[in-house]
Computed example of a mutant assay.
Amino acid sequence: MPAPSRDLTDTVVAVTGAGGGIGGATVGLALEAGARVVAGDLRADGLDRLVEEWGPGRLVTVVGDVRVETTAEALVAAGVEAFGRVDSVVANAAVGFYGGILDYSSEQVELMVDVTVKGTVWLARAAVRQFRSQGGGGDVVIIGSVAGLMIGGGKEAVYSATKGAQINLGYALDRELRSEGIRTTVIAPAGVNTAFAAADGRFGEGDPSSGPFMEPADIAGAVLHTLQQPRRMRTELWTMWSLAEKH
């Protein structure tokens, strides 16, 4: 007997940071599962590639900066306009820089805090407004990191602080919203082979594509599994590690 699974056909999923990596993989798996998707990103080029691959029928895109509250509102509004509703949001957009507490510029610190923390808060607020308006509950999925649990590597204090904020936001939202049928899940992976991970300096001269790290599709699969859980259950925090990593 197969495990019970919630059908995502024609449900509407909005994803930030969808232009590549985990976000792009999440968009693809959601579409394969029959969902309709609103894909958001700061830049249009990654979104254009998604449209080229999947076509415009069940996919709409929104270009915008998640640091601005109106971007989250536009993402949700695009789903409502195109598909009549939004059932799930995935807060995936994030920024991280690797280095000691004094190695970041003030601009880099502000960028990490604003994108990762404010961007998640704005999306959650826009989603909850829509969920309450349409009824039937919904899902808020946050892509966090094990760094937010103080079990990441060193030299990532500010990044860890932003990821810790996401985890605590998720727990608090769960307590606030679960009675309304709104589920909040934080998925917290360790090292993932993405352009994000390669660019932030944490691997030094190493290449994450050659290391024993997870792939974006692994994390996207966890997102889809979370959304496909029967609505009688929820996952609060899911940590994910490659088999070779230690903590």
Rank of each mutant, 00 (worst) to 15 (best):
R178P: 00
R36Y: 05
V90L: 10
Q166I: 02
F203R: 11
T16V: 08
L29V: 04
G99R: 09
D114L: 00
V86A: 04
G154A: 13
L224N: 03
E107V: 02
A195K: 10
A222I: 12
L237S: 11
F97G: 09
F131K: 04
A39S: 06
A220K: 02
G153W: 03
I187K: 07
V13C: 02
R178S: 14
G164M: 04
E245D: 08
V186L: 09
G144C: 05
S209W: 04
N92P: 00
G181T: 07
M240L: 15
E73A: 10
S210H: 11
L149K: 15
L173N: 14
F83D: 10
M240W: 01
E53R: 15
L8P: 01
R43G: 13
M112H: 08
D200M: 12
G206V: 05
G34R: 05
F131Q: 03
P230Y: 07
R234G: 00
N193T: 07
R202S: 14
Y98R: 08
T61V: 09
T16M: 04
E180K: 04
M233A: 15
V80G: 04
E205V: 06
R43P: 00
L237E: 13
D207F: 03
V140W: 03
A222R: 14
P2D: 11
V27S: 05
G84R: 12
A94D: 12
D103I: 02
E205Y: 02
D87F: 00
T120F: 04
A172D: 11
V158H: 10
L149H: 14
L111S: 05
E52P: 00
R36F: 02
A220G: 10
I22S: 05
V38A: 07
V80R: 07
V90Q: 12
I219G: 05
T11Q: 15
A93G: 13
Q166K: 10
I182Q: 09
L59P: 03
T26C: 01
G148D: 08
P230T: 13
M233F: 09
V27I: 10
P208S: 05
V38T: 04
A33V: 02
E205G: 15
L227S: 07
R132A: 05
A147G: 06
A39I: 08
K246M: 07
L50A: 11
V68K: 14
G152T: 13
A172L: 10
R234F: 06
M112E: 15
G34N: 08
L123V: 09
P216D: 11
Y159R: 09
L31V: 05
A195S: 11
E69M: 00
E73S: 11
P208Q: 13
I167Y: 05
M1F: 01
E53K: 12
I142A: 01
G21R: 06
D48A: 13
G201N: 09
G96T: 11
V37D: 11
S5Q: 14
N92V: 10
V90P: 07
W54M: 01
L149G: 00
G135K: 09
A94K: 02
D48E: 14
T70V: 09
G154R: 07
L47A: 13
V128W: 00
Q130H: 10
L149M: 12
V113E: 13
Y98V: 09
R129C: 03
E180A: 07
